[in-house]
Amino acid sequence: MELQLELKSQSGARRLLPSPAKLMVNTLMLLFTASCIIPLLWIGYSSLKTQAEFANNILSLPGAPQFGNYLEAIKITNMLQLSWNSTRVTLLSVIGITAISFVTGYITARLDFKGKKAMIFYYLFGMLVPIHALLVPIYLLFKNFGLADEWYTLIIPYIAFNLSLPIMLVSSYVVGIPREIEEAAAIDGLSFSGTMFRIIFPIAVPVLTTVAILQFFSCWNEFSFALVLLKDESLRTVPLGMSYFKSQHSTNYPQLMAGMVLSMLPVTLIYFTFSSRIIAGVMSGAVKG
């Protein structure tokens, strides 16, 4: 009896101990997490240092916190104007992406038509094309058609280049919705568009919320198109505003990092507020697909 108890306790201890493979995976994930968090912490406390403290030792903690760096960052960049520009462009882009991805995703999930596979491949191919390879032709196209340096300039490429993933998410989500719901709506006399917007749209709200939040992050943080297509300073977005801290001979890094912290605040607050909904929406789309 004692031998059996000893064997059971040993087997239980073995189960409690992680296997070498799990230990290696957990270690790698811990290192990856640290590599993401440590730079953010460094930016946070470096934004409270004086320029002399930062130049003397970039890793040391600040002596007396310099919260004035944030006030200077707001003044130098005209942060309110930058934030308004980014908010306007981002919200309109997110609305356009969400609406188009819902309609397109529903159609690809429910209808069979000639060229459907080609259209799906076209959207999937859009995920493989590097944006930076298209900056020059897009700049020339916008310049020739008079679309550059307008308040709506960035909305066009933001919508066009952010449709692939949302369409795939919506399509995989809609596939998992029972067709009987739409058949019952058709029997009741509801049209195709009525079924799509009055029946399917409320059901697809979780995945559409995920799409909207993810695309908010993408559009708010976008830099390349804003740099190439906008020359008017009054139209610049928050990421472009970080260039105001760089002069010809020096850069005020603590003020730059204060500006970076301010630019990250909206997306950080949104992420921590809706993180569970983002994960739930992605997972529900994956499971239903």
Rank of each mutant, 00 (worst) to 15 (best):
L3I: 15
L256N: 11
F217K: 08
D188P: 07
N56E: 12
G241N: 09
F67Q: 08
I43S: 03
R179W: 04
M1H: 10
L165M: 09
R277V: 01
K288L: 14
T209I: 05
Y139G: 02
A109W: 10
G285C: 05
K231M: 11
A73K: 05
L227H: 06
W220I: 10
M79G: 06
I74P: 02
M1T: 12
I58N: 06
P39H: 13
F217E: 09
S171A: 13
L214H: 06
A258P: 00
G281V: 00
K49H: 09
A99S: 14
S191T: 08
R198W: 11
V211F: 03
G189H: 11
V205D: 04
A34G: 11
L269N: 07
P254K: 04
E6C: 09
G146E: 02
K288R: 15
C36Y: 06
I278A: 03
V174M: 12
M127K: 06
W220M: 08
E72V: 04
P39L: 14
A13P: 05
L48V: 03
L5G: 01
G194S: 13
I213P: 06
S263R: 02
L30D: 00
P130D: 05
A160T: 11
M260W: 04
F201I: 06
L240H: 02
Y253D: 01
V25K: 10
D188Y: 09
Y253L: 06
F192S: 14
F272C: 14
L16W: 03
R15N: 09
T33H: 03
Y158M: 01
I177L: 13
L41F: 15
A64F: 12
T237F: 04
L235I: 14
A226K: 13
M24L: 15
L28Q: 02
S83V: 07
F223T: 07
R88K: 12
I187M: 14
L16P: 00
L59T: 15
N26T: 10
I131Q: 07
S101Y: 00
Y70H: 08
L3T: 13
I159W: 08
L124C: 00
Q248I: 15
V211G: 01
A13C: 08
V211Y: 01
S191Q: 03
I159R: 07
S11N: 10
T273P: 02
A148Y: 09
M119F: 13
R14I: 15
Y158F: 04
Y244C: 05
S101P: 01
F217V: 09
V228K: 15
I199V: 13
A118H: 00
L48C: 01
I167G: 07
P62K: 13
I76Q: 11
F142L: 11
S284E: 06
V103S: 01
T33I: 11
N56I: 07
R110Y: 08
V287F: 09
T237S: 08
V103M: 09
Q248F: 13
T77M: 15
I76K: 13
K288N: 13
G68H: 07
W151Y: 10
T108F: 06
G281P: 01
C219Y: 07
V129Q: 06
V267S: 09
C219D: 06
